[in-house]
Design a protein around this nucleic acid. Structure first.
Length: 283
DNA sequence: ATGGCTCGCCCAGCGAGA
């Protein structure tokens, strides 16, 4: 596969942000991009059909939006200052017939929910995911989440066969370790921290060689990307780190920063998530 | 111990989120 490689001399910044409705959060996202003119912003939970995605405000700021959405639920987008090539949405288009028949069928079924978009920017294959929430441990949606992650693995394997430079980000709806949660009380029975979810994420992502960019730079707990609207979760700093950047080995070496910007979570009518930013030195 | 909020949905409580 050949890519138009756009050469960027400065480090490339990529952010991930679950905005919980792009229409409700539009002004906040525009304001944030104005103050943080990064190259690529990956959004989750846009909650809008493609015909209604607000493209013009981003184009006016110099960002080309690429998106796939549905009514009311889910929806992902990649906003980029740089040219994006090889755009693809969903699991099935990438998997093609490389996977077994059962996996292909699952992929098509999962693609009804708009949770996956990818494109190549500056020679980097960017993958933006909105992993299913899972509702409650043991529920039907929980099984859906685990099965979805089992298809993510062959999806990523296929991409790794084409490029060693993969930057995977999104709302994973899983805290990998206890230090990623404000408390470890009841974690085994809690959605987002059960051992089966963690194992599914390790199997789909980490076992392929991807590593959590945030932990390259910060070992302490107490760093979160999501706080529950209820119970005054943000005011009491009862948070979870569930929004991640995972980098393939070649890119992990190139990472020079990974930070969480808490400022948008302090605004009036915020998303319950806040942006997480990585910086890659590709020179 | 339970439920706290916020979103979109053809406008009113309800499913979904995490």
């Amino acid at each position: 596969m050949t890519h138009d490689v756009f050469c960027l001399s400065k480090p490339m910044k990529i952010a991930t942000w679950n905005v919980n409705s792009i229409r409700t959060r539009l002004e906040q996202v525009i304001q944030w991009l104005t103050g943080n003119p990064i190259e690529v912003l990956c959004l989750q939970e846009t909650k809008v059909i493609d015909a209604d995605f607000p493209q013009a405000p981003f184009q006016a700021l110099g960002y080309q939006p690429h998106f796939v959405g549905q009514k009311s639920y889910n929806g992902v987008a990649i906003l980029s200052q740089l040219p994006v090539t090889d755009i693809s949405t969903g699991f099935a288009a990438i998997l093609g017939d490389s996977a077994d028949v059962e996996t292909q069928a699952l992929a098509q079924q999962f693609d009804e929910q708009k949770r996956v978009i990818t494109g190549v920017v500056n020679g980097v294959r960017i993958v933006n995911l909105y992993v299913p929430n899972g509702s409650e441990v043991g529920s039907e949606k929980y099984q859906y989440k685990l099965a979805w992650l089992s298809v993510l693995r062959p999806y990523l394997e296929k991409l790794l066969g084409e490029s060693g430079q993969i930057s995977l980000c999104g709302d994973f709806n899983i805290a990998l370790e206890n230090r990623d949660i404000y408390t470890d009380q009841g974690r085994e029975t809690h959605i987002m921290s059960s051992e089966a979810e963690r194992q599914a994420l390790r199997s789909a992502v980490l076992d392929l060689g991807f590593a959590d960019a945030f932990r390259k730079f910060t070992q302490a707990g107490g760093h979160f990307s999501w706080w529950d609207y209820r119970t005054g979760g943000f005011q009491r700093n009862r948070g979870w780190r569930i929004d991640h950047h995972y980098l393939s080995p070649a890119l992990y070496e190139r990472a020079i920063a990974c930070t969480i910007d808490i400022a948008p979570r302090r605004l009036e009518k915020p998303s319950d998530h806040t942006p997480v930013i990585i910086e890659l030195d590709l020179a």
